[in-house]
Design a protein around this nucleic acid. Sequence first.
RNA 1: GCCCGGGUGGCGGAAUUGGUGAUACGCGAUGGCCUCAAAAGCCAUUGUCCCUAGUGGACAUGUGGGUUCGAGUCCCACCCCGGGUACCA
Length: 803
Amino acid sequence: MADRYDPTTIEPKWQRVWAEEHTWEVSNEADERPKAYVLEMLPYPSGEPHIGHLKTYAVGDAVAHFQRRRGQRVLHPMGYDAFGLPAENHAIRTGQHPRESTEASIAEFQRQFRRWGISIDWTREFGTHQPEYYRWTQWIFLRLLERGLAYRKEAAVKWCPNDATVLANEQVVDGRCERCGAEVEVRQLEQWFFRITDYADRLLDDLETIEWPPHVVRMQQNWIGRSEGAEVTFRCEELGVDYPVFTTRPDTLFGATFFVMAPEHPDVFRLNDSPEVHEYVNRALNESVEERGSEHKPKTGVALGRTVTNPVTGEQIPMFVADYVLMEYGTGAIMAVPAHDERDFEFAKAFDVPIRRVVECGELPCTGDGPLVNSGRFDGIHNREAYPQIIEWLESDGLGKRSINYRLRDWLLSRQRYWGCPIPVVYCDEHGIVPVPDDQLPVALPDVEDYAPKGKSPLAAAEDWVSTTCPVCGKPARRETDTMDTFVDSSWYFLRYCDPHNDQAPFDREVADYWMPVDQYIGGVEHAILHLLYARFFVKALADMGYLGVQEPFARLFTQGMILRDGDKMSKSKGNVVSPQSVVERYGADTARSYVLFLGPPNQDADWSEEGAGGVHRFLSRLWTAATQAAADESAGAPPDGQPSALLRKAHWAIDKVTRDMEGRFAFNTAIAAVMELVNDVYRERESAPQADVRFAIATAGSLIFPFAPHLGAEVYELMTGDRVWEQPWPEADPAMLTTDEIQLVVQLNGKLVDRIPAPAEASREQLEEIARGSGKLAARLNGKQIVKAVVVPGKLVNFVVK
RNA sequence: GCCCGGGUGGCGGAAUUGGUGAUACGCGAUGGCCUCAAAAGCCAUUGUCCCUAGUGGACAUGUGGGUUCGAGUCCCACCCCGGGUACCA
């Protein structure tokens, strides 16, 4: 037998057992155990896994193992979010097909995940780029289209005039194309959208039905951003166009002295096509959201030379385009009330527009409440009271209506890119947009020569593929050349895991209803909004169409913090990605996994440093050594003296501590620390404690460390008991071992500690105060002062207040 | 800008519901044992400052206020760092 801890023999040994016995596979046949679906967000395969992946799957695997040993039937699958921009960029640079680089990366992810010993049911694995998968992504798209939840409209995109291509936000640096440095322009393109705003209220309300971290719930609520107010119509008489605006302050309508459009507003150039306006719009659109929103930035804008009618005063008020108005909120245009809105006020001063007070609320600009003035027949009425009256009046005159506005916008899903799921529609001169019939799915992604063709989506260059026939009339038609946002792929993959080989449907409803919802979802907090919101939307839409019996995909969510590198997010573009491989190679998977969890609370960010991994390795090594030595030791050790040994008590304390840390709290760092304490005590007390207690303590340490260091946990447990730890139920602490008869009573003077004295654990308040008064140190500190009050916290302390 | 987090020793962090000398556990550092030596391992010390060196004192949880018998924990204001901000995923 080896004389030192050697993960390179232990880890492959157990991995072989689990692979040969298919230990982590589960069928879709229910049994008597309750099901638990434990899922980590699927990785985007680019290069090799980084340290953040190690953390995600170390967390998820700990949960999966814990749940299994608590008697649950655990589904724990794995897949790859394989479409995406980085593989495409790589292809543009190198000419290597994105499929090749992606599949090479997937192979590397698989290799490392297996080496980490993650307890995955590999029979359910897939990549979202496989036709067997994206066939069903397309199928779902078509169902959403049929239901009116997918539609086309014009939207602004960022455009590089030099590369003649649409740019992702990430590809725009300081208003310039990241690749060629050309100044970025804005173009309006017809784009596909999902009508997620139809679900705004349900997405908001159903947050109450799921157990998510409160801050994530808050982020989603704020993102959806429901606010009540009114929609009011301002008419441009010259063009004969009505422009609705949303306002939360219809009570200030009489003070609307100008009208402002967002630079993205599709009608801006229709109102004024001058070079000045074009230049302003382009500049504004290339500013980051952060710059545009800044309160400190001087207000900029351009007068459009047009007017609209204020519907309550009948006045013609000037129109502007200005970057402080955001297309994403409301209708992309606002009525500006400079007297009662700070940003409108600044703009009015800068552009010399009249400012008219309509609420007596203090010095201008003021946003408070007060009686109305300059408001026709509403003069003298308090603004809160006038608010509903003005809305009613607008409604009766057809000039406006009560309205609820959401900050949430519809989901723009089309991408003018190659490496994504093709959108399964064709365009026919006669029949317009025609869905590809289900029996012709998948619309396969064709191979192309050039991943960055000029001017169009790269797919447009695949002429043979683009020209097709109309499914309705059989005449020549052209395929949609946009692909889908990768968030579409990842909005339903958790359903496919339930039934991954189904070739009749994306999933069988009965099977999905058995496994869903995901009981514990785990992933980075950076996905708190987009991915999680989109997946919730998909599940609701699928449920509405009868394909699914749940309303929410993820019953419980755990968001882990990111592992930072020198205080920065790790990303390929920053070139600061750390590979877990060096740690795994040097210390083994058990050490690497335990160490990322030991670094700190997993829901918080942690700065990566490899220093300290050695400490965790030393701990695992000490545990292995103790187990090996105890296994060889035939002696009985110290005789039992009738009292449970301190070591036995410590073992029960550790069971209790680790269990509480893992249940919901996910405090793996302190759970591991508790096992470290137990192992330290084994070393301290193994000479003095009964041999049975030593063995129990070591077996317990192996059992408790198993969710984090499964190979070593299995090895140690087998050495001590001959049993397989994963087949054993999670240990339970004996309550009798957790309590003591005596406590150390803390004596405080004005909240400062002066003494600790032993006291019976069950002593009453009166007894505790009596004991505390007897403290010699207290008497010495009192110095003749009078005790005016004593605060007794039973079982803990007595605090004397003196004057 | 807006939304959401975070800030505790030389370092990562602990303190779970306002109640034990705040700093568990680990790293690092220092000293010792073992060894021909090194590695590994084991043992001990380790918040800062002060002094009369003790069973001593003062100060310490980003900054400034506040509530409380008692605050790392609650409230107010501010500073700094991270994430998200809709085409990175």
